[in-house]
């Protein structure tokens, strides 16, 4: 590199740049926290939905599915599954309940989790809540 460009100049760019852009990131984060409540559907964050989120986590659903595009890419997107299933929590519950214990020969299959009716309702309500988050019109179509 050019002799005119010294190590201390490089060091100052590192410290100055890092501090400046981290502060900018904090400012944007602060602003985001103000905007998120108008988009995150928190008014529907009922105890049932929160219990559904816990079930979602404690059964590692993210290990196969994506949720709002994040997760594993082995099984369908579930951020809009409520809409894909015809705005029906019953259809979601029916699907989860009907998974064969030993899978489907040669094909991917969701495990049978033996959820109670109450747990099924919690999961379905969590997925309904998720589908109502304002995601800037993502996914592009109903298929997820």
């Amino acid at each position: 590199m050019d002799e005119m460009f010294t190590k201390s100049m490089a060091r100052n760019i590192f410290y100055g740049g890092t501090v400046f852009f981290f502060l900018l990131f904090l400012a944007l984060t602060f602003d985001t926290m103000g905007v998120v409540p108008s988009r995150d559907n928190h008014e529907n964050l009922t105890p049932t939905v929160i219990a559904g989120k816990t079930l979602w986590e404690e059964n590692n659903c993210i290990g196969c599915h994506t949720l709002l595009g994040e997760g594993a890419y082995f099984a369908p997107e579930l951020g809009n599954v409520y809409v894909r299933f015809g705005n029906s929590t019953e259809a979601i519950k029916g699907f989860i309940k009907s998974r064969p214990k030993d899978g489907i020969p040669g094909r991917r299959s969701m495990p049978q989790f033996n959820f109670t009716d109450e747990e099924l309702e919690q999961l379905a309500q969590f997925l309904k809540y998720t589908s109502e988050i304002n995601t800037s019109n993502w996914p592009p179509n109903i298929m997820g």
């Binding site: 740049g17 890092t18 990131f25 995150d40 988050i133 995601t135």
Partner: peptide, 18 residues
Amino acid sequence: LITGIIGTGHHYYWIGTP
């Protein structure tokens, strides 16, 4: 860090963030 810190934003397109 100049590019990567704000670059976090490329994960904030479709998850309900502004």
